[in-house]
Simulated assay, not measured.
Amino acid sequence: MEYVRAFVAGGLLCALAQLAVDRGKWTPAGVAVTLVVLGVFLGFSGAYDRFAAWAGAGATMPLSGFGYFLAKGVVSEPQPRGLMETGAAVFRLVGALVAVMVAGSFVAALICKPKG
């Protein structure tokens, strides 16, 4: 049942984003930024914690999950003082995620051949 909840939650988030691009006047970049910012706000409020507990990977894989992890890095840090400590707290949880994405993109670029 956990897989079904993750599939439904992630699918609905992605379907809503795609509908905003196809039917609305949104650009893909606007939708991406909105999802990240929404994830940050919901992460700070604690609402995304409950959603992520229910949906599992379906809540953490879309761009809103990236914003949630940015907020969670700041919230988990005990009283960051100043801009530098806050920035470090933001990327404490997200740093590994970004490293995996960069490494995966590099491997995909080595394996795949461009058309043209």
Rank of each mutant, 00 (worst) to 15 (best):
M1K: 15
E2R: 14
F7L: 13
A9N: 01
A9S: 06
A9D: 04
L12S: 13
L12R: 08
L13K: 01
L13Q: 00
C14E: 09
C14H: 08
C14V: 14
A17F: 01
G24H: 12
K25D: 01
P28G: 07
A29P: 00
A29I: 14
V31Q: 10
L35Q: 09
V36T: 05
V36W: 00
V37S: 05
G39R: 07
V40N: 00
L42Y: 02
L42G: 07
G43M: 13
G43F: 06
S45A: 13
A47F: 08
A47I: 14
A47S: 12
Y48C: 04
R50H: 03
F51R: 01
F51Y: 14
A52C: 06
G56T: 13
A59L: 06
P62A: 02
P62C: 03
L63N: 00
L63E: 01
S64F: 05
G65I: 00
F66P: 08
G67D: 03
Y68H: 03
Y68A: 02
F69K: 05
L70E: 10
L70P: 03
K72Y: 09
V75W: 03
Q79C: 11
Q79R: 15
R81H: 11
G82W: 09
G82T: 14
T86W: 09
A88R: 05
V90A: 01
R92Q: 07
R92K: 13
L93E: 11
G95D: 06
A96W: 11
A96G: 15
L97Q: 11
V100G: 06
M101H: 10
M101R: 09
A103I: 15
A103C: 12
A103T: 13
G104L: 11
S105C: 08
V107G: 01
V107M: 10
A109K: 09
A109S: 15
L110M: 15
I111N: 04
I111M: 11
I111D: 04
C112I: 15
P114S: 06
K115F: 10
